[in-house]
């Protein structure tokens, strides 16, 4: 018997319905295609309010758009904005920062989310309480969360007081103002903020595992590690795919925490693509260059989107 681990695949739970008679099949299939019409309102809505801005962004990225020319016809300049951005020397280090940042946020976000989900999958008061706290954090605006961590990580902050208090180090750790730590610190705080969402989703996946499965495993003498390795992780595998995509996208566009905690500093050491794009467009008023930097992010994610869409389709076709 196949243990249906949770809800991981509708078709898996309901094997191909025997009732699909060949007689009605063709007609049904044609009717099914019509269902695409249901996506029409969303298509039109997004066409006007999302694709139009996206197209403007793309057009802006290849035009000379500054505060002076924003509200006039834009002059086409080809790849000048991309070249200019690269020539200023900030693009490539920023790209490196972004990749490091996305990797840290994605890995900690996913591993931390899964770990939290496993820890909180027991139904007791402490778990519910911690989960409540995590949702509270997830709902708070980044300016609040970022400010709080700026305080906690400061020289006189709680964390440094504890570290120096117990004698781990002599001096305060320069979490946010040393280029070796700053990016890491901001990335970790960002991960901290995304863990609650991931934990909620993972936890729901774990709760979906039938209790009998666990009990059977326990009778066989499986250790907790074996449970995690052979039952929980396979059960949440499909969840992981979409969470990875959502977390990567989140990390790629995350900007608020950097803005609040370091403003890209010290120097330019915590500049990431979205922050650089903000600086170019809204501090330097070079909208074209800012758009070009944003387009680079979108293109990077486009690759991801293609991989995701294909793998979803492949998996659904197989199931």
């Amino acid at each position: 018997m196949s243990t249906d681990l949770t809800v991981s695949g509708p078709a898996r739970r309901t094997p191909a319905p025997p009732g699909r008679a060949p007689r009605s099949g063709a007609r049904w299939h044609a009717a099914k295609r019509k269902r695409l019409a249901f996506a029409l309102p969303a298509g039109i809505f997004l066409l006007v309010f999302s694709f139009f801005p996206l197209a403007q962004l793309a057009r802006m990225s290849v035009s000379d758009v500054t505060a002076r020319t924003l509200n006039q016809p834009w002059e086409f300049v080809g790849v000048d904005n991309f070249v200019g951005s690269a020539a200023q020397g900030s693009l490539f280090p920023t790209l490196g920062n972004t990749i490091a940042f996305v990797l840290i946020v994605t890995i900690i976000g996913l591993v931390g989310g899964l770990a939290a989900a496993i820890l909180l999958s027991t139904s007791n008061l402490l778990s519910a309480f911690v989960l409540g706290l995590m949702v509270f954090i997830w709902a708070l605006p980044p300016v609040v969360n970022g400010s709080v961590w700026k305080f906690l990580l400061g020289d006189a902050g709680l964390i440094n007081s504890v570290i120096t208090g117990v004698g781990l180090t002599q001096d305060a750790v320069p979490f946010l103002y040393d280029d070796r730590f700053a990016l890491l610190s901001v990335a970790i705080v960002n991960s901290w903020a995304v863990v609650p969402f991931n934990a909620l989703v993972f936890r729901a996946g774990i709760l979906g595992i039938p209790a009998e499965t666990f009990e059977a495993a326990r009778i066989d003498g499986a250790s907790r590690w074996q449970e995690i390795r052979y039952m929980i992780i396979p059960a949440v595998r499909p969840t992981t795919l979409v969470l990875a995509v959502l977390t990567i996208v989140y990390a790629f566009r995350s900007f608020d925490f950097i803005f609040v905690m370091t403003y890209g500093g010290p120097g330019v050491s915590t500049n990431t693509l979205p922050f650089l794009s903000y600086l170019q467009a809204f501090v330097r008023f070079d909208f074209g260059m800012g758009a070009a930097t944003a387009v680079i992010s979108v293109l990077l994610v486009l690759v991801l989107a293609v991989i995701y869409a294909r793998s979803v389709r492949a998996e659904e076709a197989n199931s």
Binding site: Y177, D178, D179, G264, G265, P266, G267, V268, S269, L279, V283, R284, F285
Partner: peptide, 20 residues
Amino acid sequence: IADQQLVVGQIWSAVIGGQM
């Protein structure tokens, strides 16, 4: 002006932060 302020600010920050 905006560029000049940003560039000087960034260098100023890098000097205080000890990066340069």
